[in-house]
């Protein structure tokens, strides 16, 4: 526990007022500020619970189809760039750190640091999406986008002589891998885009002095959302990029 945080935390919102008055941000249907904060946090965790199930369905589909069409999933997965995936994972972890520092800064009421942290988080999020865009573009060039320009040519007649070709039947199922790849990373990217829009709003409001007046619930809960999105990527990265490099024969 940080002595600073305690000092900021125990700064009584009733200070300098009559004891029956309350801080302006305490809604009338809550008894205490702490209860209000706890309620908002509970709501956010419930929302994240539904998000676990939402992404859970996609993970489940990936797990099953990878079992069914193992050779196709291995071949398709190996067309992804591990380097770009790893860099993106690092960037997302960094953005998690800056977001946590943002939450911390709001807590100790440091507006400058809060804005710097939110700005860095925004920047890292944009870089992540940029690299994701480069990867998507590669898929487009390679004709690996289902429903747009998909071709199994790379898998039936691989350019690399060391790669064993797939039978045309099995090669068809690489499309399923790429469908799941785009569904999962696309949904993740959509969550990032929504997060970046909210970050812009948070930045604007914090520049006007919000969140550093002792009422930082919004930043706390956005932090929870941002970290959840990072956790989804933590699992997407090994599943989509890493675990298919050395197939069991």
């Amino acid at each position: 526990m940080d002595s600073h945080a305690i000092a900021a935390g125990t700064a009584d919102p009733h200070e300098g007022h009559e004891s029956n008055e309350h801080p302006p941000y305490l809604r009338h249907h809550f008894v205490t500020v702490e209860q209000q904060r706890e309620t908002a946090s509970f709501g956010m965790w419930l929302f994240l619970l539904t998000e676990i199930m939402f992404f859970g369905g996609l993970f489940m589909a990936y797990l099953l189809y990878r079992n069914w069409y193992y050779p196709a999933f291995v071949a398709a997965s190996n067309t992804l760039s591990i380097q770009l995936g790893a860099i993106n994972t690092g960037i997302l972890i960094l953005s998690c750190f800056t977001m946590t520092m943002g939450v911390y800064s709001a807590e100790i009421r440091n507006r400058k640091n809060l804005m710097i942290s939110l700005g860095l988080t925004l920047l890292l999020g944009v870089i992540f999406l940029g690299i994701k865009g480069v990867e998507y573009h590669q898929k487009y060039v390679e004709h690996h986008i289902p429903g747009l320009n998909f071709s199994v040519e790379d898998f039936v007649h691989p350019a690399d002589p060391h790669t064993a070709p797939l039978t045309p039947d099995m090669a068809q199922h690489t499309e399923l891998y790429f469908f799941l790849y785009f569904a999962m990373t696309g949904m993740h990217a959509l969550h990032m885009i929504i997060g970046l829009c909210i970050l812009l709003a948070l930045l604007y409001r914090s520049s006007q002095g919000a969140y550093t007046n002792g009422h930082s619930s919004t930043v706390d809960n956005f932090g929870l959302y941002w970290h959840f999105v990072d956790i989804v990527w933590t699992f997407l990265f090994p599943l989509l990029y890493l675990i298919n490099r050395h197939p069991l024969s």
Binding site: G90, L94, F97
Partner: peptide, 26 residues
């Protein structure tokens, strides 16, 4: 009580751990 938080030092240690684990994983 206001909810307690960890000091930035903890966050930095966690950041390093996350990056190292990701590198090992890769």
């Amino acid at each position: 009580q206001q909810h307690p938080t960890s000091p930035p030092r903890t966050y930095i240690l966690i950041l390093l751990a996350l990056l190292v684990f990701t590198a090992i994983n890769t």
